[in-house]
Design a protein around this nucleic acid. Structure first.
Lengths: 338, 338
DNA sequence: GATTTTTTTGGCAGCGCTGCCAATTTGTAG
DNA sequence: CTACAAATTGGCAGCGCTGCCAAAAAAATC
């Protein structure tokens, strides 16, 4: 479209091809290919001549061509809801370490928790013929599911276990997390419990935690007294704001937050307002962020295996493991805020 | 290598090709290609027939083949030091939003602050013939620089401005950040200033901040009294630990931290130890994390344009802008801790 | 030294798509 | 109805590499 003159200036694709290397080394193309991939047999002398030519010409193999010619791409596609929610960078971190070791490449796109966008991005990803597509959770549009099933590529659904997996699932039960959080608060004797969360229609895993949290409290005869759902993303500020609003409407002795960052916001709100924790108000979070342990009173929360989720998912793909659901569990941290 | 029997079970690459679509629609291959890319001319009737065939067969274009056949790949490669340091997810977030809008794909690898690994990963990235490679800062091995220059693909160096760019640079001056941090502390009257940081040989941008911080204090005749460098990554725990060690060795009235997370660790250490802030000890961070504003005394720090760095970098690539250095600046937040 | 076996090697047909060009169809003007 | 321009369309040669197969060279055996 624009600046074709500029384009000229900055594009000099140093197109050294395998054929040129072969020529320079005085060997056949397939020999170069074998040496470079260290696959098949060739003599040490040949190897040296090829490597010398590669070095001399500054040859960089073209994976695009290589992938097209062979099959299976060593690309792993991540279609994640967000990069602001620490969960996803953590998962990527775990996965990328394993993938890099095995010479796979990670590709990603961010759906912003929008299922429609997820479908579009998943389609775009499939066009790269990845070895696997990794998504968050089980809630996808029908189109997405159909497309993934038809694609023939491996699918890994991450961070959830409450639902039917398309292929592989790695994570833990969000329902169990919600349930155990509620049970913990009940054990501690709290009875007037509230909830502060971010948009649940979009973050369906948070939604599952909340709903099983509610069910557990209902069963105990002490349902959630009040809840405050904030439209924006999970954040410290929203946690603070949410708690402020909630306390303006209801008298509570404990609050469950959809995430640690929100819980921290709530915690700081209490500090600022002189609300003593946990005697006046208990706070319980979710995720087990490091910073939760560093505050004056360690945050009571559930620690999730985020990095491990990425690692395991990547390992299963690398090993071409059969369909399965891997439960990594979570750990309830009693902390000092509840 | 392993499980070829398993392999059979899970690979049914639904290989519907463009040729099959053409066949089914009763048109030529190039026509299908034109319709799908909405490029060139074709009649409305043809369009419908093609789309119907695409729908019916569940055709997913193969970008690998498309990229090989055309030129330029609409892939943007990120070679970043870490995903734990919030800086990089933020940059990716900004960039990926812009890239997705323009139908580019983000690919990434994590170097773990290791220049050797950076070189290897950059080489692997170039094999995908990306439209651009984005790296952190200017400090690369000679091999990396040579390879990037020879590659002919655009290069963007992020988050630094103190050095010579290979092509495009987007960020701000870390030296200026260090200098202004020091100047601020001096203006506030602090004279016995210490530093707590993470591994500086590896995070060269943090190294630059520290060195210009030191120079500024030296020039004022009040050099850094003591510093504590922790081997691990920047983290809340390390900040706490670093400050504890530092205070055991020196009497200080202010401490500069290499990052906000470390500064927060220091802040909480003070809270726990009853050290009053800022009267007994001032704390100054770097990055401007949200949580720094939520704690009882807002953290004094420098806010960096992380998301914007990613956005601008992506925009320049999408627009195929000429080589340039874009200074996004930073903002000193006075806060209440210094 | 001849023969068999094993190791190396090169040739070449695709992988699925795009870009170019020529051919065909359609539209328009004379 | 003819001539000419414009809009559509199809054919096909690659893009750079890998995989297969047969040929050549080297090593082992008798």
């Amino acid at each position: 479209m624009s600046g074709s003159k500029l384009t000229m200036e900055f594009k000099h694709q140093a197109t050294v091809t395998l054929a040129e290397v072969a020529e320079a080394a005085g060997v056949g193309e397939s020999t170069v290919s074998r040496v470079l991939r260290n696959h098949g047999s060739f003599s040490g002398k040949t190897r040296e001549r090829v490597m010398a030519a590669v070095e001399r010409l500054g040859y960089v193999p073209n994976r695009i061509a290589g992938t097209l010619a062979s099959t299976g791409s060593r690309l792993v596609a991540f279609v994640i809801p967000s990069l602001s929610n620490i969960v996803f960078p953590d998962v990527l971190r775990g996965a990328s370490a394993v993938l890099e070791e095995n010479r796979y490449q990670a590709v990603f796109s961010v759906t912003d928790y929008d299922p429609g966008k997820e479908e579009a991005l998943a389609a775009a990803m499939l066009a790269w013929r990845p070895a696997a597509v990794m998504l968050a959770g089980f809630e996808h549009t029908e189109g997405t599911a159909k497309m993934l099933r038809a694609s023939g590529c491996r699918v890994v659904e991450l961070l959830d276990l409450d639902g039917d997996a398309l292929d592989i699932a790695v994570g833990f039960s969000n329902r169990a997390a919600g349930r155990e959080s509620a049970a913990f608060l009940l054990r501690r004797g709290y009875r007037r419990i509230g909830y502060v969360g971010h948009d649940l229609n979009r973050d369906t895993r948070a939604g599952k935690r909340f709903s099983s949290f509610c069910e557990t409290l209902d069963a105990a005869g002490t349902p959630v007294v009040a809840h405050e759902i904030l439209a924006g993303p999970s954040s410290v500020d929203n946690g603070r704001l949410g708690l402020e609003r909630l306390l303006a409407r209801a008298t509570l002795d404990a609050v469950y937050f959809s995430n640690d960052d929100m819980a921290l916001g709530g915690y700081f709100h209490c500090l600022a307002q002189g609300i003593s924790i946990p005697s006046q108000l208990a706070i319980f979070g979710y995720n087990g962020l490091d910073i939760g342990r560093a505050i004056p009173q360690p945050l009571s929360t559930i620690r999730t295996p985020r990095v491990a989720t990425g690692e395991i998912a990547a390992q299963l793909i690398v090993a071409n493991a059969p369909p399965q659901a891997v439960d990594l569990g979570f750990e309830l941290i009693e902390g000092a805020t509840a």
